[in-house]
Design a protein around this nucleic acid. Sequence first.
DNA 1: TCCATATTTCCACGATACTGGAAATATGGA
DNA 2: TCCATATTTCCAGTATCGTGGAAATATGGA
Lengths: 111, 111
Amino acid sequence: MESKNALSKLSALAQENRLAVFRLLVRAGHDGLPAGEIAAALDVPPNTLSAQLNILSNANLIEGKRQGRSIIYTANYDAISGLIVFLMEDCCQGREEVCSPVMAAAQSACC
Amino acid sequence: MESKNALSKLSALAQENRLAVFRLLVRAGHDGLPAGEIAAALDVPPNTLSAQLNILSNANLIEGKRQGRSIIYTANYDAISGLIVFLMEDCCQGREEVCSPVMAAAQSACC
DNA sequence: TCCATATTTCCACGATACTGGAAATATGGA
DNA sequence: TCCATATTTCCAGTATCGTGGAAATATGGA
């Protein structure tokens, strides 16, 4: 990932509501959630949310697909792991201090 | 890491100059770099840089220590790995799609 | 003490971001 | 066709951010 790409992902996530949206969608899994439900869950007006979904979507962190009247948003797992890898490789080159806590967390969290 | 903490780190890094400062300091290693050299390397006026160093420092991503007339800044490796772990654990709970690319990168990059 | 160097603080300007009302668009059903 | 629902686009107001000039502070050396 080039750093420009990483920058757009970082700034998309660097906002309370958008980070919350992303976390919600990650938890929602591959089925995703319609925009309206996200707005309700976060208690944000639908047009405000729409702007934020757009920013996350432009950063490629989420994707929206129309399904009937709703638009279902899903998290893009590749994108977030790409960002994490960018941070790791950018920081980790020979830097065991950064890398090994991440490895440890990965092992206990999932792998 | 609480998400508020993560948010301040994300927004500190979500800016071109500041991301560049951080990368530079990571590469500089434990010896760090004086503010003036950072400013010269990035071609940013010293007072502008100072504001950006302050933001990174408030997010705990870097630390400055006076040494003679200079102030030497170093990257805080714990902080960045904390952020990475936050992103991983926040995304990774049972999500092998996110976790395994990160593990693979970690293994080839450093561990 | 006086001066040069290194950096920060103060302050104000311009740019960008966040927000939400109102209107527009898209879909599905009666 | 008409209406309700779901979401977006348009637009403008406010707030926050990034920037850099000028002055202030801190340090070390002559």
